[in-house]
């Protein structure tokens, strides 16, 4: 049993080394953005197009759903290669559709005059391309995005498995010296579960 668990722990880690290291390193881009200057390049083009403003719901998710058909229509009309991410409402009554993929962000702004559109293309620098890769999830956007989603699921489940199999291996290996391990495990688990409860029950 121990050998089997150890092999699962080792081989899943080896298979996913690059993904795990990528997520670990890109975590620094998110936590320490000032360490990684973003040498991005922006280009803007304007197009003439009449558009109708759909009725928005209350929350951001409702806006996202309502805008999906128009986002896809705009994506085709303006040859956008990235995937639709979200819609941001503008103070003048217009809105901006944001499309993202690692390395590129495209924003289509539909102005309140309802007959003009601006397309802003942002080419991100190196570290920020990795940052976007860290944030890429969901299965929508075509076969490649679906495959990415499957891989992400495997990485996520593996991380949970690393933790569980690691605890199991510690428990088996240190049969006579578990006190320190119990203290560390109890401390970290209490802190993590405590943080969850603290954020869940607060007003």
């Amino acid at each position: 049993m121990y050998t089997l668990i150890r092999k699962i722990h080792l081989y899943t880690a080896l298979a996913l080394t690059l993904f795990v290291v990528m997520y670990a390193l890109t975590g620094f881009v998110i936590y320490r953005p000032s360490w990684f200057p973003n040498n991005r390049v922006e280009t803007t083009r304007s197009e003439s197009l009449e558009w109708e403003r759909p009725d928005f719901g209350q929350g951001d998710r409702e806006i996202f759903k309502v805008m999906v058909p128009q986002a896809e229509a705009f994506r085709e009309a303006f040859h956008i290669s990235a995937r639709y991410g979200f819609t941001r409402t503008e103070k003048d009554g217009g809105y901006t559709l944001v499309y993202r993929k690692p390395g590129v962000e495209e924003r289509i702004t539909a102005y309140a005059d309802r007959d003009s559109i601006a397309v802003l293309t942002i080419q991100n620098g190196g570290a920020w391309t990795w940052n976007r890769m860290h944030q890429m999830h969901l299965f929508k956007g075509g076969p490649l995005y679906f495959l990415w989603g499957v891989l992400l699921d495997i990485v996520s489940i593996s991380l949970i498995l690393f933790a569980l199999t690691g605890v199991w291996m510690w428990y088996t290996l240190k049969a006579k010296q578990r006190r320190l391990g119990w203290i560390l495990l109890a401390g970290s688990t209490t802190y993590t579960v405590g943080s969850l409860i603290f954020l869940l029950v607060g007003a």
Partner: peptide, 18 residues
């Protein structure tokens, strides 16, 4: 082993949140 025990819960939360 001990680093894993200290940060294992974070890895689990990280996996769950992903």
């Amino acid at each position: 082993i001990y680093v894993g025990l200290v940060f294992g819960p974070y890895f689990a939360i990280y996996g769950l949140s992903t």
